[in-house]
Design a protein around this nucleic acid. Structure first.
Lengths: 128, 128
DNA sequence: AATAAGGGTTCTAGTCACTGGAAGGTCAAG
DNA sequence: CTTGACCTTCCAGTGACTAGAACCCTTATT
């Protein structure tokens, strides 16, 4: 199967698939003309990667998860540890963003938003 | 005032201050020896930038906000528009992260996390 | 046989907002 | 006169792609 079909089946852009090969996440073989040849296992792996990325796992996490996925003698504890770590990072990010949102929302609400220059948003940014 | 003092006063790393000069956010003058010379206005601007960045505004937004800040004939509506746009993007990001968190939390909870290989996290990533 | 469309390939460089490090100039104190 | 703490510039790397250029391969049509 050629890259365009794989792209269609996995929903990943061809560029991304090539990139994933570049960084060693997949190793498709090549046909005589130099084209990449993908098998079912590649489709599976790429779909796996796509979903892991959707859940926000870093590429390095993805590499780890893929290795665990392929290791029949893995311990589920190892998978869980990766996921929990990621989960806690997501929690931190959400907390940060919520703090920003709360502050910003207050500021936006207090701003008249008219033609006059007076603006509590700027005042706050300039304040201490 | 030299860069180290400015860094201490604003909480911004010296590298960042140099970077901000590079991209034209501030224009400190130079003394005979080539050292940057900062005035109070630079401290103010840098503090302004630091707070805007803390609220998650992009550098380009910061540039806009700084220009508005310095424009006495600005309309507060312009400031508010920038802030509202940013606010809505933060909201989207939070929603995305919460979706990830919800999915991940469920998966993590359903994983035994022991020495056995069976893992619903991997099953989900590999599933459809 | 020529050509055009629609694949595929590699390579470089750009994104964002810094950050690290190397190589070297300047300054005040001991 | 040397040490150490400053300062300078410039280059490269981060993460995860993405855009684009330049070129090759295949198939169908003229």
């Amino acid at each position: 199967m050629n890259i365009k079909d794989v792209s269609a089946q996995t929903g990943l852009p061809a560029k991304t698939i090539r990139y994933y090969e570049d960084i060693g996440l997949i190793r498709p073989s090549r046909s005589a003309n130099g084209y990449r040849v993908f098998q079912e296992t590649h489709i599976h792996k790429l779909a796996f990667l796509g979903r892991a990325r959707t859940l926000g796992f870093s590429i390095e996490d993805c590499r780890t998860l893929l290795a665990l996925y392929e290791d029949d003698s893995r311990a589920s504890a190892d998978v869980k540890a990766v996921a929990e770590e990621h989960l806690s990072q997501i929690g931190e990010k959400i907390a940060q963003l919520e703090a920003m949102r709360d502050t910003l929302r207050t500021l936006v609400q207090s701003c008249a938003g008219d033609a006059r220059p007076d603006c509590p948003i700027l005042t706050d940014l300039a304040r201490g």
